[in-house]
Design a protein around this nucleic acid. Structure first.
Lengths: 332, 332
DNA sequence: CTGTTAGCGCATTCAA
DNA sequence: TTGAATGCGCTAACAG
């Protein structure tokens, strides 16, 4: 920056201002400085800027998996929301593990992010402590935690799955099974299972029929194996709800292979409205949540909260309930 | 850090050493320091560390899309490779646009990454300049650029697609069509189309039958519309190669819907060996590339190159050819 | 194994 | 609209 300043015949402070929009500087000076920047191939060092201004320009975002269109759509929404604000995403993948979330959090906090976006409301005690004492806005998404850390942009996975069961019930299905993963690692998956059981109970459908297969997130292939297990164990099942569209699709294809007509022999429903569920034959009934909108809403909320802190205010904790919708398609 | 030092009765330098593995420090001193760190809830500020040590600990990675299992698998491979090295990924999404790549590059360079991993070998002139003068290791992946910037870990998309056409030819198909996007934005997609045309020519199959549909990356749904267009325009086609498994899957489902038997009426092949192609019914013929391995190889290469620069050496440019494999399945 | 000195490259703050 | 002095929080380099 000193070299640029010398070449342009100004002080480094003026160069600093020229490189930041919104600073008072004359057009002519800026022009000269930009020319010098170009000639020298100068690239600003944000590291030094961060140290000096106490603003990193980072927003930490933790998602379970980057190759899941629900979460990557949310990341897209966040990106869109913060575009132009000068903030940069620091993305981390937890692999659906709260322990990995904790490790990532520790490492990300050393970069002094100005805000944190989390997926889900389950965290290790240490993570909670780190988050609560970080002194920056925190947003939990894709869930409705009992005890939110601060802000929330989400919905109840249990309620959404209950709605799906009720919908199937209204269409005449009485022997409804559920396919999910073997552990509670994926807490959203676990909540969906809880919602299923609640609905079965409140509709007086008697026994729950749950197949737990594979460690979450359960794959298409595992969905296929699970549906066979479900039908073998309870031949009377007339509908299967899968924890996500991926396993639902796998189940659907396995039914094709075995000549089980969908939905006549067995109906199949998923969760998440993935592209594959809109395209499969038959198209899959699912629960749709606007993942991009979750990201956008969370991103805007975060921007406001960061803005508030910069001005010394404190935005009050806010919870945004996102709508979900059961989409009936040909598979039920 | 000064607070921690005071509480532990040491200098800040000793605290700094205690927090970094590989530094000479007595167990007792480290224990005292760690206790102080815990009690105070101290979190190291890597920003200051970066400024002082001239090592950011960042590796910039640019991929076209984060919701594409090929690229997210590669990111996973990179993560695995750099795990434990203390490096952190700075991930950017180009949306298949070289212009966006340029913008991202500029913004990432201000964070002083220690290495850069790019997808593909096409860049704007300004991007090339930025990369060449960055003074850090650069790796291009998923491609075999004519004029590599430095290191390469990839394969020829054209050669892979040629191999697929030859394979179909060997199985008796003579009227083979190609489905891809409308522009050359997706350069890997464009290379695949080139490979298709080369193969058609060298096999003496006469005319090329190419449907360009939708702007890349082309979706499942667009694949479905494109196959209808292909069959309408050239009713004699007996096989369709799609630019990726996603469009191939959409095409397959559309065939189901219209009662076109696959592969008897028309064979379908994709590219990329996505999960959906292994699970669909019939299973999709495709070209498989080990995306995770591309990431791992690139990650390890980058680590070596970074290590070399830290020691003042310069790793010679290296090109790793990754293997691809045509996988014949039930759809052809 | 530990401490001291110095400085990384900027932006804040204040003055002009 | 511009400049000077100062310090952000840490680590390199060297000394002991």
């Amino acid at each position: 920056m000193a070299d640029v300043a010398e070449r342009a015949g100004v002080s480094t402070m003026t160069v600093s201002r020229a490189l930041k929009k919104g600073s008072p500087i004359s057009d002519e000076t800026r022009r000269r400085i930009m020319a010098a920047v170009d000639e020298l191939g100068y690239v600003l060092d944000q590291t030094a800027g961060t140290l000096s201004s106490k603003r990193s320009g980072f927003v930490a975002t933790l998602i379970p998996s980057i190759n899941n269109s629900n979460f990557s759509d949310t990341v897209r929404g966040i990106s869109e929301a913060i575009e132009g604000s000068g903030l940069q995403l620091l993305l981390g993948r937890t692999d659906y593990l709260v322990e990995k979330e904790e490790t990532l959090l520790e490492s990300m906090l050393t970069r002094r992010p100005e805000g944190i976006l989390l997926t889900g409301g389950s965290h290790t005690p240490r993570s909670r402590r780190l988050l609560e004492s970080a002194g920056i806005p925190i947003i939990e998404t894709w869930d409705l935690p009992e005890k939110p850390i601060e802000h929330v942009v989400g919905f109840s996975n249990a309620a959404a799955t209950r709605a799906l069961v009720h919908d199937l019930f209204a269409r005449g299905y009485r022997n409804i099974g559920f396919i999910g993963g073997t552990s509670n690692r994926d807490t959203r998956g676990a909540d969906r299972r809880v919602g299923y059981s609640q609905a079965i109970a409140e509709l007086g459908l008697g026994q729950s029929r749950i197949i737990s297969f594979g460690s979450p997130p359960i794959s298409m292939e595992q969905g296929g194996e699970a549906i066979v297990q479900l039908v073998t164990q309870w031949p009377e099942v007339d509908a299967a709800i899968c924890v996500s569209d991926l396993s639902a699709f796998g189940a659907l294809m396995e039914c094709h292979r075995r000549g089980w007509a969908v939905p006549d022999r067995i109906a199949i429903a998923g969760f998440g409205d993935f592209e594959v569920s809109r395209c499969s034959h038959p198209r899959l009934t699912t629960v749709s949540v606007d993942a991009v909108e979750i990201g956008r809403t969370a991103g805007h909320l975060l921007l406001r909260a960061i803005e508030a802190r910069r001005e010394g205010r404190l935005a009050p904790p806010e919870t945004s309930m996102m709508p979900f919708r059961v989409i009936q398609r040909e598979s039920t």
